[in-house]
Amino acid sequence: MLLFNSFLFCGFVCLLAQLILDNSKLTPGHITSIFVVIGAFLDTFSIYDIIIEKVGGGAMIPITSFGHSLIHGALQRANSMGIIGILMGMFDLTATGITAAIIFSFIFSLFFKPKN
C-alpha cells in the first residue's frame, strides 16, 4: 500500500508543478521555491508528518520535503534548547542532502566537461 501511495503522492506533486508551469509564466526555479515554502507551511501544523506516515518514502522525494525537514529539525531542537534552538537545529535533517549535493557536484564538475 505504501508503494501505491508513494506513486500517487509523488506523481500528484509533479502534476501540480507541471500544470503551474504550463498555465503561467513562472519558471521551474520559481516553482521549486514556492513548493519549499508550501512544504514548510504544511509542517507548521504537523500535516506533512501525517502525509509521511501514510505515504512513506514517496513523500520524502519531492522538494516539499526539504521545507518540511528544515522546520522539523528546528522545532525538534527548539523543544530541548528553547527559542535559540530554531536557529541551531535548522539544518539538522537536511545537512545530508545539501552536503552530498555539494560534494558530488564539486567532484563531477572537476572530472567532467560541460557537454553543451
Partner: peptide, 17 residues
C-alpha cells in the same frame, strides 16, 4: 505534458519507496 509529469514523478516516488 501533465500526464507524462504525473507518471514519471510517480515512478520516481515508487522507486524511492
Amino acid at each position: 505534458n501533465a500526464l507524462i509529469a504525473f507518471l514519471s514523478g510517480g515512478v520516481i516516488g515508487l522507486c524511492g519507496e
